[in-house]
Design a protein around this nucleic acid. Sequence first.
DNA 1: TTGAAAGCGCTAACAT
DNA 2: ATGTTAGCGCTTTCAA
Lengths: 337, 337
Amino acid sequence: MANVTIKILAKELGLSTAAISKALHDSHEISESTKQRVLALAKELNYIPNPYASSLRHRKSNTIAVVLPDVTDSFFSEAINGIESIAIEKDFHVLLYLTHERAQREETILKEFKSGRVDGIIMSISSETTNFDCIHDTFSKNMPIVFFDRICEQIDTAKIITNDFESGYLATRHLIEQGCKKITFLSNSDSLLITKNRKEGALKACLENAIEESFLHVKLDCYANEFDSEKIEQLLTSEQKPDGIVCCIEKFTPNVYIVCRKLGLSIPKDIKVLSFSNLNTAIILNPSLTTITQPAFEMGKAAATILIKSIEKKSFILKDETITLPSTLFIRDSTTN
Amino acid sequence: MANVTIKILAKELGLSTAAISKALHDSHEISESTKQRVLALAKELNYIPNPYASSLRHRKSNTIAVVLPDVTDSFFSEAINGIESIAIEKDFHVLLYLTHERAQREETILKEFKSGRVDGIIMSISSETTNFDCIHDTFSKNMPIVFFDRICEQIDTAKIITNDFESGYLATRHLIEQGCKKITFLSNSDSLLITKNRKEGALKACLENAIEESFLHVKLDCYANEFDSEKIEQLLTSEQKPDGIVCCIEKFTPNVYIVCRKLGLSIPKDIKVLSFSNLNTAIILNPSLTTITQPAFEMGKAAATILIKSIEKKSFILKDETITLPSTLFIRDSTTN
DNA sequence: TTGAAAGCGCTAACAT
DNA sequence: ATGTTAGCGCTTTCAA
């Protein structure tokens, strides 16, 4: 691979490597005629520049890292589409790293970025992450980071989020309007800001309707499926059995549906269920699932746009700035009578 | 970023850069005591090797490319998980490229790989791809490629697939056993081998039951949602209206369900539907969806394992070898009376 | 307009 | 056991 080098072109044309390099970059120092000759030969020999050689010189890799908890979540995979659409446009390459919701993995990944492998990072932190030293450390070493969705408040950089508090509020208010009096918030984390905000929003709706006494916050483990089922079953057979559930993450929905079926609980009659989700099967679930759908693609796009801008123009500095794109509540059968 | 270099360590310790390099690689040429000193300082100064410098020397990037049509498809996102699990283990990095089912994009992406940016490629070709010159070209330049699922027969390399013919056959036989007499195969491509094989399998089942006359092959455009809906509606209101549908790709399912609902067709009573899919919401659809589920994670794992082996040991040459992992038919309500 | 030379950071052959 | 040197492929002064 990559055998045709500038050196070869130079020898072939009786020019210096410097001249070739300049010609290839359309430098004004080089005459039109030589440029033509160089371009022609480059094309003929199928010259392709070695990206690592020029990375080494430039200290720029034209590569960004995308660090995510879970690529099978529809929100994240759509966000990747958004990121990729910009990367392609700006001629950037995308390294994908998955944390699988583990803080430990995240740390290892982030440390590696101090190597200069990437010019910037787009990330959504894991549900476990509580210590931000490592993130802060690589960020403070001049590595641009843009957070999206699961942001890290403590880092003074750009953040792309949705209106989580409001979404939690509207979702819960909707449940209450549909007659729910005992709301449970199925959470994926005790630490994530988005989860906290969604929960706070939910709680506000409960408070406004004086049903905060029965509000429950139940944390499930995103990566222990059977265990989750048990926990849901416990919940739904306990004294505190809710009549309305807000799932913080789409992954919980199948278990909730299945346990309800097993227990003979009808959705939405006995219990109403709603989830944050971007799944396009939501509409054909049984019953169709009311969702809060985030603008995943747009968020990815925004994150990539800002990140790449900050990489390309050093005058553009990532401010501690939060861009909020609104989510949409799609009301479907799982919450309506 | 990446400011601490071997040179700095060398100066600091009064050693040559060569000695540092060897010490860091635990060479037997270096005394234990200096190794200790070097390691200690490296740790203290937080030395992190520049990957591009060593890539340049070694002509090895420890990076693989994953080229996919669509990251939001549950099959592909699970496959990424499998690939990533091996990449992490073997200390490889993963560059993600999406073709969005466009041959043109695929070609551009593949050409770039001649630059030496990656040591190998894992790919699943687009539904449009009919010309393999470009793939062949980069493959013949000594770039290892492993195909999975949507393979390219013409290239003499390793391929990880599932038993597509058999799956198509079993799926269709199942439909016929459930009483279907007019089967339609909703296809995503006219060229993909997997699609052809699935269809052939389906046809075989029809032939065995003498209902091949009514067998239909309808191709939908993966990226034109409304258009697909129309086409499905046409199909379901035509003379040739099937009583059994095999979806080649999960993306078609929502439209099929929705159109059926719109037309007042009951699944499974009036029409039975089945799809190739890895969605874990299949079980809670209305009705729950019968699926052929491919071992996506394992396929990704297998592809990455083989690719990386061929990168690491030059003695291991990718043979034109096909590894077939079996899919599973999960029978659910969408096909049973 | 072109070339010579140095160097990005790391490594490997060949001294010492 | 350690150092010297050259070079991976490309870019960028600076000199011609």
